[in-house]
Design a protein around this nucleic acid. Structure first.
Length: 428
DNA sequence: CGGTTTTGACCTGCGC
DNA sequence: GCGCAGGTCAAAACCG
């Protein structure tokens, strides 16, 4: 118990030091990603360093401050490694989505070739998607390459918006799966096949830029979702049927970035905000923006695959993404508009209550701006850290193998005898 | 002073 | 063609 208090104090000191930075957002980002990955490591290592300094002088090898400095250097290295691992995980997830879409496309093409008459039995909206299996979707928030291996060879194509008189504004319309070079080539083959099929069906049909949107419905006590990007408000309008005005924002992080979003409060429940994203960033994203980018990218992938296969078309279904906040699953709804298909992710519906897939009765309130999401570091406050210490401490204590592994890792990490560590880390 | 917000006017698409 | 609603523009105001 005393050790636990000690750890908390250390965290407070550590937090004070690391948060004293001009660029709060960037610092938060760095701190959060490392914290979640390294909660155990940082906490325990810091505890060790202090304990070492309290030992008799003859047991201390060298200057304690130098030791602390060395430990911090190693800690930074571990943080970097964790960031690399996180990047690799993101890459794997993205490629998984790519493969999934390829499979769906292949199945769809096979279905088309075997029974072309099926098209005529589809509803009007469905056929629209059948004709354009790969929506030239304006991918929301492209995901920057977190690692050198994460090569994003954008083979997107620019299409003038359907309204060509609209001041000639162009949007970079890209296929969603842009992250894998092989996938791009493969995608290109499929695209060409599909396009040739379309041309056979209707030579006069034009490839229009379908404006896909991702709408997120979530609870928040903030009027603006903190998603890591900088937005500039360019308009406000009161929509029909909702006395709450709808605000229009444009991304101000890049020069002429086409990404826009709308934020509107639900007038029936003013804690609910509906944020609609549209467009594709033409600049690098800060780390704080990547979780939302990944989430919406997953949603758009789902939109793509669903519209491709017509599975659950127009229906609601469970949307879950590795980028979704922990313990939260959205109810996804399609709005199959031919000009602007929208997928709405509703995080306000208590998933565990409506769907008996989970016994988890944790609060369904998903408090945007994603306070509970590790990708939004500005929301990681001291209380959360301290709570995490409790959770982690309990987890370590309950799991002897984890404890042993940690000691082993720490001994190699700090060159401290685990047997000595054992005396210092008696958590609870 | 530069960036952001506000707000009325304007543009565009759509239904009748 | 007209009216309506959603979306955007741009000048003025505001702010740090």
């Amino acid at each position: 118990m005393e050790e636990n208090i000690e750890i908390k104090k250390l965290l407070e000191v550590d937090e004070k030091q690391t948060y004293d930075h001009n660029n709060i957002d960037l610092q938060n980002t760095k701190e959060t990603s490392s914290f979640h990955n390294n909660t155990l490591g940082s906490t325990l290592v810091l505890s060790l360093s202090l304990n070492n300094t309290t030992q008799p002088p003859h047991q201390i090898q060298g200057n304690p401050q130098i030791q602390i400095g060395n430990i911090r250097v190693k800690l930074d290295e571990a943080k970097k490694e964790n960031e690399n691992l996180r990047s690799m995980l993101n890459l794997v997830n993205e490629r998984c989505n790519v493969l999934q879409n390829h499979l769906l496309l292949a199945m769809h093409m096979h279905q088309l070739s075997s029974s072309p008459q099926n098209n005529h039995n589809m509803p009007k909206g469905s056929r629209q998607d059948e004709e354009e299996p790969i929506l030239p979707t304006r991918q929301f928030l492209n995901i920057d390459e977190p690692s050198p291996s994460y090569s994003s060879k954008k083979e997107g194509f620019s299409l003038v918006e359907s309204n060509e008189n609209n001041k000639g504004r162009k949007f970079a319309c890209e296929d969603i799966n842009i992250n894998n070079e092989d996938s791009i080539n493969h995608e290109g083959e499929i695209n060409s096949k599909i396009k040739s099929q379309e041309q056979m069906e209707d030579q006069t049909s034009k490839v229009t830029c379908t404006r896909a949107r991702v709408s997120i419905r979530a609870r928040s006590h903030f009027s603006l979702m903190v998603d890591g990007c900088q937005w500039r408000k360019y308009g406000q309008k009161t929509a029909k049927g909702n006395p709450c005005p709808r605000a229009y924002y444009r991304c101000s992080m890049g020069n002429s970035c086409p990404v826009r979003k709308q934020v509107q409060r639900c007038f029936k429940d003013e804690t609910i905000f509906i944020t609609t994203y549209e467009g594709n960033h033409n600049h690098q994203l800060p780390p704080t923006a990547r979780p939302m980018a990944s989430l919406t990218s997953s949603a758009l992938n789902t939109l793509l695959s669903t519209s491709t296969t017509n599975l659950q078309y127009g229906n609601t279904f469970i949307f879950s993404s590795p980028f979704s906040p922990p313990n939260s699953t959205a109810i996804a709804t399609f709005s199959p508009s031919p000009t602007c298909p929208t997928i709405t992710l509703d995080f306000t519906i208590p998933y565990s209550n409506n769907f008996q897939f989970k016994k988890n009765t944790s609060t369904p309130l998903f408090p945007f701006p994603l306070q509970s999401f590790e990708g939004f570091p500005s929301m990681i406050n001291k209380e959360r850290k301290l709570a995490l210490v409790d959770v982690v401490s309990e987890a370590i204590e309950k799991n002897p193998s984890l404890k042993a592994s940690l000691f082993e890792a720490m001994s190699s990490f700090t060159n401290v005898n685990p047997l000595n560590i054992n005396n210092h880390i008696q958590i609870k």
